[in-house]
């Protein structure tokens, strides 16, 4: 297995006249947690959208498991092993917690139209297997007792965890979390950190965007810093904290973040 799971090479993306992402390139090593930080509007979410296929780059390459995935549709990228959560929660709010997690299983299931209409034995077997699998993921994030609840009845922090369970159900090699601690209180953030370490133990590589600096420095093995669509620094949390450019551009200016 290659140590490099994902890499970006000279990726550009403009929206109208705005250069959202310029010449971005970095590597994500297997079984690590990589944080992407930067001020608002730096292009962090755009980078995530480029990786997951929600938008296509103007130029440049995204390589996953040694193969280019640039320009593929989101659903085939999920199938290749990249799952994501959203900055603003995007659960299927009217559906149950279990149904939400089953959406993650979709890409690993096979039953088609005919098998479903006729409810063939193979289809029923598969359903049973993946309902169990979905329940396991719910247990992993600690929501198994709420499997029958509608997703929108959950507390905010639980909804974030449900989104993670849903993404994990697709059996990803790379999990992309867009501001997972956003809107969480201190207690919930600590539990989230524990959850991410547990995910890492399952040999799933994690990429995350986060504004909570102590959280990022705590859970990440590597940090990529962006500003104005450019990568301005990359390194271990220790290196980033000492980096003069980063302190000027981001940490020094915005002292609300506490570093």
């Amino acid at each position: 297995m290659p140590p490099t799971l994902l890499s970006l090479h000279n990726v550009y993306k403009t929206f109208g006249g705005l250069l959202a992402v310029q010449d971005i390139g970095f590597e994500v090593i297997r079984d690590t947690v990589v944080g992407v930080i930067g001020p608002n509007g730096a292009g962090k979410t755009t980078v995530f959208n480029l990786i997951t296929g929600s938008i296509k780059p103007d130029s440049g390459k995204v390589i996953f498991l040694k193969k280019p995935i640039t320009g593929l549709k989101p659903h085939s990228i999920v199938n290749k092993g990249i799952a994501r959560t959203f900055q603003t929660i995007r659960l299927f709010s009217k559906l149950t917690v279990l149904e939400n997690v089953l959406s993650g299983c979709h890409t690993r299931m096979e039953a088609g139209l005919v098998a479903s209409i006729l409810r063939l034995p193979s289809q029923r077997r598969e359903e049973r297997k993946f309902i169990d699998r979905a329940m396991d993921e719910l247990e992993f994030v600690g929501l198994e007792s709420k499997w029958q609840h509608p997703a929108d009845s959950l507390a905010y922090g639980d909804q974030r965890r449900l989104e993670i369970a849903r993404a994990l159900a697709s059996d990803p090699q790379l999990l992309i979390l867009d501001e997972p601690a956003g809107g969480m209180n201190e207690q919930e953030t600590i539990k989230l950190g524990d959850l991410i370490r547990k995910i890492k133990k399952r040999k799933i590589t994690v990429m995350l965007i986060e504004h909570d600096m102590s959280f990022v420095m705590d859970v990440c093995d590597k940090v990529v810093v962006m500003e104005g669509g450019l990568k301005i620094a990359e390194g271990s949390p220790m290196e980033i904290q000492k980096n003069q450019r980063v302190i000027e551009a981001y940490l020094g200016v915005d002292d609300e973040n506490g570093y």
Binding site: T52, S54, K73, P74, H75, S76, V78, N79, A83, R84, F86, R90, L91, F92, S93, K94, L95, S103, G104, H106, T107, R166, A167, S170
Partner: peptide, 12 residues
């Protein structure tokens, strides 16, 4: 419910 989320969960 949400076409974008469905696509992102692997539904074509």
């Amino acid at each position: 419910e949400d076409t974008v989320a469905a696509e992102s969960m692997g539904v074509n």
